[in-house]
C-alpha cells in the first residue's frame, strides 16, 4: 500500500500519526481512502474535485502536475506539500 506522509499541520486529523498507509492507485483513490479513515482530510486537500491551489502533491519525491489523476504505485510515498509559491503563478523559479 502507498505510504502517505501527513503534514504536521494536518496531523491533528490522524491523531498525531506522521505516516499512514492506505489503499489507492491514483491520488484520487488515496484521498478517498484517507477520508474514510480520517474524516476531514478531503476537505483540507480538495476543492471542487481538484487538489486545492495552494497544495502540491509529490509522488516518490516528484511534484506532479496531474493532481488527482496522478498514478500511485504499490510502494509509493505520497506527500502533500504547500505549493511552492503559495498562490503565485510563478512558483517554479526564475
Amino acid at each position: 500500500m502507498p505510504t502517505v506522509y501527513i503534514p504536521s499541520l494536518m496531523q491533528s486529523l490522524t491523531g498525531g500519526k506522521q505516516t499512514v498507509q492506505v489503499e489507492g492507485s491514483t491520488v484520487r483513490q488515496v484521498v478517498e481512502a484517507l477520508e474514510q479513515s480520517y474524516p476531514g482530510m478531503r476537505a483540507r486537500l480538495v476543492d471542487s474535485g481538484r487538489i486545492k491551489p495552494n497544495i502540491s502533491v509529490a509522488i516518490d519525491g516528484e511534484v506532479t502536475t496531474l493532481g488527482m489523476l496522478q498514478k500511485v504505485g504499490e510502494n509509493s510515498e505520497v506527500h502533500f506539500l504547500p505549493a511552492i509559491g503559495g498562490g503565485s503563478h510563478n512558483r517554479h523559479g526564475g
Binding site: P7, L9, R44, I55, P82, G86
Partner: peptide
C-alpha cells in the same frame, strides 16, 4: 494553513511547517 483558513483578517497569507 495547508488547506485550512482561519477566520481572522491578517497580513499573514499562509503558514507552513515541515517536520
Amino acid at each position: 494553513e495547508l488547506g485550512e483558513k482561519t477566520d481572522k483578517s491578517s497580513n499573514l497569507a499562509s503558514h507552513f511547517r515541515h517536520t
